[in-house]
Structures are given as C-alpha cells and as structure tokens.
Design a protein around this nucleic acid. Structure first.
Length: 578
RNA sequence: GGUCCCGUGGUGUAGCCUGGCCAAACACGCGGCCCUGUCAAGGCCGAGAGCGCCGGUUCGAAUCCGGUCGGGACCGCCA
C-alpha cells in the first residue's frame, strides 16, 4: 500500500472500527507512559491517536515522519476525547517505521503559539503544518472552486491573458521585466488584465472571467500584498444592475457552498460621498454604527480658535459620539490623539474637554446633535482639510469600535458603494479620474461634464464586506466621441492617449459592444471570511512589508553575466550625506 | 518619502520608565531517568541567552543617548 491509497489520519472515525490500516504522517505529540506510549499522528486532515505497546524501540520525536501499521479500535470506555474529531477511536500499532527524522522546529507547531512573524515566514513550510493555516488554505481552495462552478454555470469563459505586458505610466507602479532580444526595452507584469478583458469583449467572447495574479509595486499595508489574486470579470451588453445581480448571486453561492450560510440579497447601496461623510472611508464597516456628523456650518464664528482656523482655511469640522465614552481616561484620549496625529491630523478635541469654555451653548448643542450624543457619551472632534478629516475620523471610528468592542462579529455586512464619481481632485488640486479613464459617466449627468465635472456620477461600483473592499468595477465607455471628451477634460494629450491606449481605441473602431465588469480580490475576501486583519494569514507564501521573501531570500543579486545578457547595468543607490 | 511600535535562551514573555539587588526570572519546548490509558500527560534531574548590531555617556548599561539592521502598524502611495 502507498500513502496515496492509505486512509488519512484525520479522517478516521468510529465507523472504521476494526479496520487494519497503514498511516503516514508527522508526530505531533508524544506521551510516553513507560509501558505504553501515545502518539498524535498528524496529516493535512487532522490528528489521530496511535497507541504503542511492546513493539520494540520507538525512538520517535516530534515532527518525525513515520509510517504506522495497526488496527483502528474504539477507545476503552471513558478514554474517548470529545475535543478530537477522531476522539472516539485510536490506532493500535503493530508496526512503526521512521521514514524521516526531524530537528526540533524553531517554533512549536501549534495553533496557539504566537511566534514572531518573521520566523514564521522564514519557515513557512512549518507554519503551514499548523492546522489553522492549513485549514485557511483549504478554505481558500473551496472558495475558488465555488467561484469556478458559479462562473461556468453562468456561461462565463475562463481565458488566460499574458503575464508579459506593456507598461503603463498610469495607476500603480509596474514590475518590469527586461527583454533579452530587445536591448533597453521592458515588459511589465500585469497590474490587472484590464485592457485585455475589454479587448476580449471586442473579440466577441461576451462573458469572460479569470482567476488572475496581479502585481503592483506599491508600499504594503496590513490588507495589501504585492502579488494579489483577483477574480476578473467582464461582460458585454450589460448594465450595472446585471453586475450587481451576478456578484450578489456569486457571494450567495460561495457563502452557501463554503460556509453553509444564506446571505440576504440585494445588498444595500451607499453613495460614495455619503460614505466618506458618515463613515470617513470608501469602505465602511457597518457592523457598528458610530456615525460621523459635520458641524462646519454651526462653528463658523466659534471662539475655539483651533476649530475656527481650520474652517477659515477652507476645512471642515467633523465629530462622532463614543457611546458611554465619558468613562475614558485622559491617558486613553491621549492615545487616540496620537493615532490622529499619526494619520496627519493637527490634533484631536473631545467634549467634554478643554475646548468647551471657548464655545457657545448653541455651538455645543449643534455638536451634540450632529454626533447624536447622549448624556454618557463623549464626542470626538477633528478639524482639518476635508480629505484629511475624513481619513482621521474613519481611523478613529474603527479604533473606537475595536477598543469598545462594538463590532457585531457574527454579521456579514455586504454593501455596494454606488454611485461613485467620475473625477477626483489630486494633491495639487488638479482633476483626475476616480476609477479609470474608461469609466462611463451617468447619461443623465452628461450636461455637467464641462461646468461641474466633480458632480458627474460614474457607472462605477465597489462591493464592501465588513470594511474590506472586496471588489470594484465599472461600466466602460464604448462611444469614441464620449471617450475623447473625457480624455479632453482630464487634460490628456492626443499623443499620450495614442501611446497608452492606442491599441484599445483602435480596437473600438471595429465594432465594440457596450461592456462592463468587475474585479474581486480573493485575498481580501479570504480576510473577511476568516476574520483576520492580516492578509499574510490567507496567503501560502507571503512577502514582508519590504517585498522580501524571507524563506527564499528573494530578491537577490544576479550574476553579472546574466545582467550583461539582458543589457542591464546596475547603478547602486547614492547614500545621502548625513 | 514620512510618523510610530517592537527586537532579551529554541519559542513566548518579565525585567528597561526610576542604571548597581541580573554572571538575567517564568512558562513552553529541548535532553536524561521513572511511570501500562494519556491526550497542554505526570514526577524528578539537567542543559541552554549576556539582552539584534555598532558606537557613546557612566566607576558601572539589558536598562540612558546616537546610529544601523530586521519585523510590524499607519500617513502618502495603491487608475
């Protein structure tokens, strides 16, 4: 018998009683009682207890790989272990062979051990032996399989797109790959198959999907990795309502398949601007309320100079109530202020607090009303430029929810951010696109394009789950005249457009169907499903914040000959004089 | 590009603020011995770090200061 046909350690049950088996696995734990020794044998499917009595020397240690022959037996009455899935039975060994010995691992292979993450990443193959991580990977597999079944059932065709693409100066920074055959020229790795999927629509595929790897050379966060996996979808002759229905159906199916849970559809929709105002983010977590209010107008004449000066500079004053927050210590408030300052705020005010005596009764009442504050509540107040105030309030709102345990953890809170807006203001106050330059405006807002572009709604949408942006997309522009107008408003030159999007625009001259789509980040989806706030928990081999693979030791220098072949010369960074 | 947090045996922590009582403590793990029903097995014994690295202050540094490396969180960035 080989290990392939052998039963799994973790799969044995009382119904296997009496069965002669051969098991392969790792020694998870050993309990030596002198005359009898118990071994918990582990494989991907779980643990089973092996009983060893008088079969000679059994010098097995933790993490040894062994083969055990024996008989599945019901445990003696009273010695069943209800904490183990295999706890009703045990395997009485008749033979044990050590296949491979093992050094003591650098950390204990146990779910509750909280070893340093760098160490876990270096020995990721040991980390994955921990049942929790192995189960997360399996869950991820089942989610992806469910997605494939659903997309296939709806007649979407999976088409693979190239990994070596043309670079784009727009959007995220590209990872580039040198061309050996074309000195000085480079490919770019895909940030997403965006243009290719639109070309597939021109090609008449109609319904396309792909579970695609995408790479973005940007600085990392707790919910961002360099190499992301996304479900990429595009379809022809569709409206946003079709996309909503498709994706709501998809998540319903996945939740039912994988978690056995019915989720209610359709999902609620929230206007992007409303989300930024009320929740301080474009991906609100509505498993807790803590709604933010604006009190800018009520404080125009206030005597509280810190607030007044922010307003005079064109900023806003925002606030929200911390339920029962009057019990917060000065120390805790200082910590919150530190968080606010860390996010770039000038400061944090609270009521009741030192600012009270500079404000009129009317102003205080307005703030209490806007925050919806009760008698025991404390109100947090931030005054700053609008975007900064939103960021800071969003951050504080999340922090308060965590600290005061206001999150309803049993809830799956799906929602659409819709509508979004076609244009945004960049740091220099210049107009730029909100989603991407092919996003279609709302037909009824066309008259605003020239005069009030910021008010033009976009046929773009994000799907948010428990505060994670799990997908986003849009209906694309397919009319050349409209596309040209949008480029014009964005101030893009004809040459720039030709160089970057020429192939797409040319394709559109050969009969383009109206089309739209969406991309869903599988990594963030898995974060929401598993309830982790660390994206590395749902990736088999993640990189660090500084893009390093601690296990492989990548990136690493390459041989000069290899560089020469690629016509590349390395210029070491200049160390700045200190 | 910026701000902040962390770095003590194999692992996780305590000690650091308020320098000497620390040739560093506790738990787990590891090694040996005992033990026929444990399952975080138990009992006894034992080994294992000079406190990420470099430099400074001091009679004296894990503890204070500067730099540096590594990890993490956040702002910017991520169409």
């Amino acid at each position: 018998m080989s290990g392939f046909s052998a039963p799994h350690c973790g799969s044995l049950r009382a119904s296997d009683d009496g069965r002669e088996v051969e098991l392969y696995g790792w020694v998870a734990r050993r309990r030596d009682h002198g005359g009898v020794t118990f071994i918990d044998l582990r494989d991907r499917w779980g643990l089973v207890q092996v009983v060893i009595r008088s079969i000679g020397e059994t010098e097995v240690r933790n993490e040894y790989v062994v083969r055990v022959k024996g008989k599945v037996t019901r445990r003696p009455g009273g010695s069943e272990n209800p904490k183990m899935a295999t706890g009703e039975i045990e395997v009485v060994a008749s033979d044990l062979e050590i296949i491979s010995e093992a050094k003591t691992p650098p950390f204990e292979i146990q779910d509750d051990v909280n070893a340093d993450e760098a160490l876990r990443l270096k020995y990721r193959y040991l980390d994955i032996r921990r049942p929790k991580l192995a189960q997360t990977l399996e869950l991820r597999h089942r989610v992806v399989q469910s997605i494939h079944r659903y997309m296939d059932a709806h007649e979407f065709m999976e088409v693979e797109t190239p990994m070596l693409l043309k670079g784009t100066p727009e959007g995220s920074r590209d990872f580039i790959v040198p061309s050996r055959l074309h000195p000085g020229e480079f490919f770019a790795l895909p940030q997403s198959p965006q243009q290719l999927k639109q070309l597939l629509m021109v090609a008449g595929i109609g319904r396309y999907y792909q579970i695609a790897r995408c790479l973005r050379d940007e600085d990392l966060r707790a919910d961002r990795v360099v190499e992301i996996t996304q479900l990429d979808v595009e379809m022809s002759f569709c409206t946003e309502e079709d996309v909503f229905t498709l994706i709501e159906g998809l998540w319903s199916k996945v939740w039912k398949d994988v978690l056995g849970i019915e989720i209610p559809t359709p999902f609620p929709r929230i206007d992007m601007q409303e989300s930024l105002l009320k929740y301080g983010t474009d991906k609100p977590d509505l498993r807790y309320s803590l709604e933010i209010g604006d009190v800018s107008d009520a404080l125009r004449e206030t005597g509280a100079t810190v607030l007044r000066s922010a307003l005079d500079a064109g900023g806003v004053v925002r606030c929200f109530a911390v339920p029962g927050g009057r019990d917060m210590s000065r120390r805790e408030l200082d910590e919150l202020a530190l968080i606010a300052k860390g996010a770039g705020a000038k400061g944090l005010a609270w009521i009741p607090g030192p600012l009270d005596r500079h404000m009129s009764e009317g102003e205080m009442a307005a703030i209490k009303a806007a925050a919806g504050a009760g008698a025991d509540d404390l109100i947090l107040v931030v005054a700053d430029r609008r975007r900064k105030a939103e960021t800071v309030m969003g951050l504080l709102r999340r922090e308060i929810a965590r600290r005061r345990k206001l999150i309803r953890h049993d809830e799956w809170n799906f929602l659409w951010i819709y509508p979004m807006y076609l244009f945004e203001e960049d740091d220099q106050g210049k107009l730029t696109y909100g989603h991407h330059p092919f996003t279609s405006p709302w037909p009824e807002d066309m008259h605003l394009l020239a005069e009030r572009p910021y008010e033009v709604r976009a046929r773009a949408y994000d799907c948010v789950l428990n505060g994670f942006e799990i997908s986003g997309g849009s209906i694309r522009i397919h009319q050349p005249e409209l596309q040209e107008r949008v480029f014009e408003i964005l101030g893009m030159s004809r040459e720039k457009i030709r160089a970057q999007f020429g192939h797409l625009l040319e394709a559109f001259e050969y009969g383009v169907p109206p089309h739209g789509g969406i991309a869903a980040g599988i990594d963030r989806l898995m974060m929401a499903i598993t309830g982790t706030d660390n994206i590395r928990d749902v990736v088999a081999f993640p990189k660090t914040q500084s893009h390093q693979d601690l296990m492989l030791g990548a990136p690493s220098p390459v041989d000069p000959a290899q560089l020469a072949e690629l016509h590349i010369q390395v210029v070491p960074p200049q160390k700045a004089p200190s």
